[in-house]
Nucleic acid binder design. Structure first.
Lengths: 349, 349
DNA sequence: AATTATTTGTGCGTATGTATC
DNA sequence: AGATACATACGCACAAATAAT
């Protein structure tokens, strides 16, 4: 036989669940419950005390017993998770600085995660976030050009009402989420147009195949070549992935630059490596080969020959992403942003 | 008048705290308690029930009431709070990068807070942390040279078993906490010694009065002057605070450099401002005045005349602090570190 | 191994205090 | 001020689990 107080507890729980007692001043008094349930007031009290400690109801002396808001609006924790591929390197400190500058104005603290562009890390982080309570998410997608098994996890988080803003790259399946990205397609076009304007006619390119940015920069590159009626030859395109960058470039560079006078690189990091390799081969930059890359980071200044690079204000990108997230949190509809690149001319062209 | 059950609860809590009842089968029976405390068994039961729901004791039918293992080991959340004065500026990105590199290896994520060197912000953050569950704390003290009203808050956190590592600056009241700081006193001495070696004899200095680092750099500065039997004159020392930096320097610089040929600045930021001011006055650096500062940051490169500056590897400092914290978390006793400065000679001397 | 004493769990009744409306 | 509803407190009886005999 079940104890009476447990019977009452279950009865009340079910009734509240079914909506018999709505949120507010709704439960019968202790005396009433005792009478209708045919038990003493003490037993009723025992049941109510336990329900109160569970947080389901709230007792107020002199007033009565009320059902607590079943679904309290997500309580603000003042924390926003920021998931990027890297944290302390390359352009990421700038971006984080932008994010932080906006968050701190809103008394929100960033919780940092780095995926190192690995799906498994991303999965670990997302699972972690289900437990940890955050108010929102700023995410740089991981390997956005590949099918991502973590999309359902993002969906799950979205379903709980968590706002998500993507930055740099997003998953096509989640394109309805707000994203703040660079206009990589236009950037690819501009790189070619600029080099063409400086008399170059034989193009080659190195692109990253596992993220959206790489594909888009490539598609812009190709489109502009077509527009200029220049030949497109797969032998002059080199694709690499996060894991095989150094080897791929070391092995493939010779092949793609053969007969070319212009090279478009996915980013400064790859361009820096290229310049070091070419330096050893005695190839003159920019006379033999003009090089344009993306990001205009400190790497492009560090190189033996300063690299002409397409720039985007990463501080601003971070700020915009964070502002969008703050907007979403206060119920504003936010639109995505495609930020244009700006070419910064240096010594490699 | 306090309810009897509350009286009993407090009595038992105190007794358990004092060790009257050790962990295990120790508490008197309900009947005994009722008798000795002169109350009914029901009242005793109420008190015990509440203590049980608090997790302090455990009741077992037929057996008795036992004291629970006093402190369950704090469950790991995989989050560490990092509280610094700034986040995205000056030397802080480097330091954070160091911290993050160690944390990520341990699958821990940094939760970032910036105090902007304001006590009120620090208070807000600490109160926030009482609610948020973090495994540890890396803190750069706020205005460590001034009495800090938040020390009791830190004590409270320490009492809950939270490990704390201070970086750059710590509170004298909490000097027993592990800290990773630069040897500012030695740095102050070295700056003077170096300038003396380059023939300078008339020193002035600008120091920050509200943090420990400022006082220590000053004390080293003074000690070295004494050792070299050089005169010490308060008219050649300028003190500033976080809030009044620009004005203080703009107003006081003329006074302190009068008749001097060597200036020691608290950091690159202040040195940069000094160089800009002196440039307008037509004072030649380093011929009229040699300048040495601290931090060897990008500011010292950005200046019109590159500034000779004492360097500390902020990436390493961050790494060390994070490693110490990871050590504390796994129960290792950690010692504090005083990292030496290394002078990097540039154009201002 | 069964019995018994002990200890907590469940349940009822009553009385009085105190906050709320 | 009074009615209402929860809070505190005591007393009793019996059930169920445990530990010792």
């Amino acid at each position: 036989m079940k104890p009476k107080y447990l019977v009452l507890m279950e009865h009340l729980r079910a009734a509240i669940e079914k909506g018999v007692y709505a949120v507010g001043e709704k439960l019968p008094t202790e005396y009433e419950l005792a009478k209708t349930m045919n038990m003493s007031r003490q037993t009723v009290r025992q049941a109510l005390s336990l329900l109160e400690s569970e947080g389901l109801i709230e007792k107020r002396q002199g007033s009565g017993t009320t059902v607590r808001a079943a679904r309290a609006p997500r309580p603000r924790t003042g924390t926003v998770a920021v998931i990027t591929t890297y944290i302390g390197e390359y352009i990421f400190p700038e971006m984080l600085r932008g994010i932080e500058s906006v968050l701190s104005k809103n008394s929100v603290s960033p919780l940092l995660y780095a995926t190192y562009n690995r799906i498994d890390n991303e999965q670990r982080i997302l699972n972690d976030l289900v437990l940890k309570k955050v108010d929102g998410l700023i995410v740089e997608g991981t390997k956005t050009a590949l099918p991502n098994p973590n999309v359902p996890l993002y969906r799950k988080l979205l379903d709980t009402g968590l706002p998500i803003v993507f930055i740099h790259g997003y998953y096509p399946e989640l394109s309805q989420c707000v994203h703040v990205v660079a206009d990589d397609h236009a950037g690819g076009m501009e790189a070619v147009k600029y080099l063409y304007g400086r008399g170059r006619r034989h193009f080659c390119g190195i692109f990253k195949s596992d993220d959206m940015q790489g594909l888009r920069r490539y598609s812009g590159f190709i489109e502009q070549l077509q527009k200029l009626k220049l030949p497109i030859n797969d032998d002059h395109i080199l694709w690499y992935t996060t894991e095989t960058r150094e080897q791929t470039v070391a092995m493939g560079l010779g092949r793609i630059i053969d007969g070319c006078d212009a090279l478009v690189c996915y980013n400064d990091e790859i361009a820096l490596q290229v310049l070091e390799l070419l330096g050893r081969e005695g190839i003159q930059i920019p006379s033999d080969l003009a090089v344009v890359s993306f990001d205009n980071s400190s790497y492009s200044e560090l190189a033996p020959i300063k690299i002409t690079s397409l720039a985007n204000d990463e501080f601003l990108m971070g700020q915009m992403a964070a502002k969008k997230l703050m907007g979403l949190l206060s119920g504003v509809k936010e639109a995505s942003i495609k930020s244009p690149w700006k070419l910064v001319e240096k010594d490699s062209t």
